[in-house]
């Protein structure tokens, strides 16, 4: 199966979790067991979309690999993959300065 160009399927910036769902549905329905995702022309991936991508990749029975991944995408995927379980501020919330009536 030839590589799937994710920017052509979705858009240049991968922004929301929900936007990835049809893409992964297409992958699941593809007959091939080995899928190559081409990240050419992807200009940006959000943290949420990166998290969603990694979750789908971990869950699927397909063997997924990537090509032409720009640094802006690889660094976000790496950042999300290596993050702690809970957002840091939940453990150490900043102290609120004051409460006002508006």
């Amino acid at each position: 199966m030839k590589p799937i160009e994710i920017a052509k399927e979705l858009d240049e910036a991968l922004i929301t979790r929900k936007s990835l769902l049809p893409f992964f549905k297409k992958i699941e329905n593809a007959p091939a067991k080995k899928i190559v995702i081409d990240f050419s022309n992807v200009s940006f991936i959000s943290r949420s979309a990166a998290d969603e991508y990694l979750k789908h990749k971990a869950r699927t029975k397909k063997n997924i690999s990537e090509i032409h991944m720009p640094k802006v995408v690889s660094s976000m995927l790496k950042s999300v993959d290596s993050a702690d379980e809970r957002p840091f501020l939940e453990e150490n919330p900043p102290k609120a300065a004051q409460i006002f009536l508006l």
Binding site: I15, T16, S48
Partner: peptide, 13 residues
């Protein structure tokens, strides 16, 4: 884009 995309994802989710 980071800020906008997180806000957009919250909007959608």
């Amino acid at each position: 884009k980071y800020v906008l995309s997180e806000l957009a994802d919250n909007l959608e989710q």
